[in-house]
Amino acid sequence: MGSVILSDSEVELYQSDIDDDSLRKYILVAAMVGCFSEAPKIQAATYSANQIELKLQEINGSFDIEKYIDISKAFKIQNDSEQSVEFKNMSIISPKIDKEFEKYSNYIEKDISSAKAEATGVAKVIAQIKFDKISVELTPSNTIKFTLTFDKEKMLMVTYPFDTIEGVNKGDVVFSVFVNRKHIASDSMNLTDLVAGFNNFLSV
């Protein structure tokens, strides 16, 4: 199984000398965005604010690769280790989301199934962070909060509001960073940017 994340705004034709494995993934992505009539086997597809994520089964061997090199430069293929982190993390987060929605869905002031779909979309982006431990909670403020810990020192709290709140752009998250439980930063921003920035912070 592979995973591909792409920007849905920059599809363009492009020919490349990339290796076959990546190429197959590109083609599967392109198939998903409608470049091909013969869509290969697609196990699952989910949509979040600015991204489309595809979870794919291996392509059928008879698929004509040469015919379809029609993809976006903006496609970001994750390497295998990143993929395994994301999938492993989602296997940890998903049951926690289910449990919270079973127990605390009374906190949510919107359609529960769409809130759960939004929460899962947010979780899939957060799953790209290599955390040690994570907790998930629905809050009485109509939000879902993810708390991630790292090396027993660093902690990241990410809160996604299901409705717009003052001072936070629609679709953005509110986050706080703690080191040794001391608060060092808070702000609101786009989740994808936050995840990229936080991964950089962890790698320093």
Binding site: S135, S141, K145
Partner: peptide, 14 residues
């Protein structure tokens, strides 16, 4: 508490 991260749940103190 959120047991995994040893943090207080937000519905305990608003």
């Amino acid at each position: 508490f959120n047991i995994e991260t040893d943090t207080l749940r937000e519905d305990i103190i608003f």
